[in-house]
Design a binder for these strands. Structure first.
Length: 236
DNA sequence: AGCCATGCACCG
DNA sequence: CGGTGCATGGCT
């Protein structure tokens, strides 16, 4: 075992698998995972939240004192963090304060991952998991060696971005593309889901596939387009 | 051009 | 002397 491929590198009773299962069974949507830096894990109880994540998924802050943030973990433990920002240069640097208790409970250290997810009712769920072998292959906090566009990714985009089958019965494929361009794109920092699938959300058909531990997603205007590309990508 | 990891000055 | 809050600097 241990081919290095996602799927068999983390099966069974590993803590990561357990956390993933717990989150999934609760209907959680993971929106960010932070690999803890030494600053995050040095006991100060402060975790830096990337600005883009903060401004997309956390409340807007009018002042740097911030607001309390209620969260729970998958075991029902409750936490109250403080979401705030520092003035940095002319911009903001966002932090969560008060994470020590949760970090201790999960024994999180440098390189381990703090998971942020939402329940369907949008309440915040947090979880922690140890660093996986896969994490250590990724970029931060450990400097990534070099990874210029893996062949798998290239092949995937070629196969899935199908501007091709316009020959015979492609009449139905010519319907207007409103929102879906049918191109698979990597979804960074998302917990790889065990199953690839096609589903509809907000009226947009979405094909989600997992390749070597990374999730890719493409949008389509119709279910049949989605399924066709999904199958073309090698997942039936 | 600016993020963000971390250093560090200041304050109690 | 430990925490806060900002400054600095590596990296993209």
């Amino acid at each position: 075992m241990g081919t290095g491929l996602a799927g068999d590198s983390d099966v069974g009773g590993s803590p990561t698998a357990a956390v993933t299962r717990a989150l999934e069974s609760m209907g959680c949507t993971v929106f960010y995972q932070k690999p803890l830096t030494s600053s995050d894990a040095n006991g100060s109880g402060r975790v830096v939240v990337p600005k883009a994540v903060a401004e997309q998924y956390f409340p807007h802050l009018d002042n740097q004192a911030g607001v309390p943030i209620e969260a729970a973990d998958t075991l029902g433990n409750k936490y109250t963090f403080r979401f705030r920002f520092w003035i940095n240069n002319q911009s903001r640097m966002y932090l969560l304060e008060g994470v020590s208790e949760m970090h201790q409970r999960y024994d999180l250290k440098v390189g381990d991952v703090m998971i942020f997810a939402h329940l369907p009712d949008s309440s915040l769920i947090v979880a922690g998991r140890p660093m996986t072998e896969e994490d250590s292959m990724r970029k931060p906090p450990l400097r990534r060696v070099n990874n210029p566009q893996s062949g798998v990714k290239r092949d995937l985009q070629k196969r899935a971005s199908k501007p091709t089958p316009k020959s015979s019965q492609s009449k139905r494929l010519q319907k207007r593309r409103l929102q879906g361009d049918g191109v698979f794109r990597a979804i960074p920092d998302v917990v790889p889901q065990p199953e690839s699938k096609v589903f509809s959300q907000h009226g947009v058909w979405t094909a989600t596939i997992e390749i070597v531990g990374e999730m890719y997603q493409a949008y389509f205007d119709s279910q049949e387009d989605a399924i066709e590309a999904f199958n073309a990508a090698g997942y039936a």
